[in-house]
């Protein structure tokens, strides 16, 4: 078949143009990254990461059914909502739902144009969350070191789509690529605990997570204090569930040191101590 070279060129050109321009719209992820690199570094190294970032953003766009700010809109928050949703930050999720990046129509063009845009802040629900998965898959393929892709994907698979098996497979893959990621270990523990109620395996991976955290660089430790707290609190809870009240209390004490709300944890400690009082006293063991 004869193909007119002009039409082929036009297709390629248009594709390249559309892609590059739509990337430019989400280039906020990129600006900090490519500055010092040369073109080749960008194409083969950071280029992949750039695309991975783009696809991760696409997952967030899908999560909002297209209601999504571009780089030109002022953004209230840098964080992706699928991340906060997957970390169970319900209140911040609500905040975002109420805030409206579009604002009041600026002029008649904008006002009329809104007839043809998605103007409602919604989140996927009723198993439609599955629609974000292809983008996460692509992001993970392009940048296997991007750990949040695995945790976010696993969260939705486990929590909303009832596929803990797939969540586990995805997290295992992430762990192979990032053996030191306590974020992935934490999410994996949740699969074992929340979905399979397998306390032993959950305890194992969470304890491993804590070990990994302890050897992580100091600045990362500082940034990820919340993950550490979650690991510790969750460990406390499974010890509580397992009836190892002493271990549970020790974990809660450890959590109090990093928690922004130690009082709430104290209440849980008190509750466990009450349960203990009804039983034979247990000496606290060594934790880590």
């Amino acid at each position: 078949m004869k193909i007119s070279p002009l039409s082929m060129l036009a297709v390629l050109g248009a594709l390249a143009f559309t892609l590059s321009a739509s990337l430019a719209l989400t280039a906020d992820n990129w600006s900090g990254r490519a500055k010092s690199d040369n073109v080749f570094g960008m194409m083969f190294g950071d280029g992949r990461k750039l695309f991975a970032n783009h696809f991760f953003t696409m997952a967030d766009v899908y999560f909002h059914s297209g209601y999504y700010p571009s780089v030109f809109d002022q953004r209230a928050t840098e964080e992706k909502e699928i991340i906060s949703a997957s970390h169970g930050h319900k209140d911040s999720e609500e905040d975002e739902k109420n805030e409206d990046f579009l604002g009041k129509p600026k002029d008649w063009v904008d006002a009329f144009g809104r007839n043809f845009r998605i103007t409602q802040h919604t989140h996927l629900e009723n198993h439609n969350e599955r629609e974000i998965l292809p983008w996460l898959r692509l992001a993970a393929d392009l940048d296997p070191q991007k750990t949040e892709v695995y945790t976010v994907g696993a969260f939705f698979l486990r929590e909303h789509l009832n596929r803990p098996d797939q969540a586990e497979v995805f997290l295992r893959e992430g762990l192979r690529n990032n053996p030191d990621s306590y974020e992935i270990l934490f999410e994996l523990g949740r699969v074992y605990h929340d979905a399979y109620h397998d306390l032993d395996r959950a305890r194992n991976v969470w304890q491993l997570g804590i070990k990994k955290f302890m050897v992580a660089p100091a600045d990362r430790q500082k940034d990820d204090k919340l993950i550490f707290e979650e690991l510790v609190v969750n460990l406390a809870r499974i010890e509580d569930e397992a009836g190892n009240y002493g271990a549970a209390i020790d974990w809660f004490h450890a959590a109090q040191k990093v928690s922004p709300a130690p009082d709430a944890l104290q209440k849980q400690i008190d509750a466990i101590q009450k349960k203990m009082a009804a039983l034979i006293p247990v000496t606290p063991g060594k934790l880590y």
């Binding site: 039409s7 036009a10 297709v11 248009a14 594709l15 559309t18 899908y62 198993h127 599955r130 629609e131 998965l133 292809p134 983008w135 898959r137 994907g153 698979l157 789509l161 596929r163 797939q166 995805f170």
Partner: peptide, 24 residues
């Protein structure tokens, strides 16, 4: 992820291709 109900990305890609093709 062994989920055969995922469809929106296909719609997205197909419509993008349609837009590019029709424009060309």
């Amino acid at each position: 992820f062994h989920d055969d109900k995922i469809v929106r990305y296909v719609k997205d890609i197909c419509l993008l291709l349609i837009w590019v093709s029709a424009l060309v």
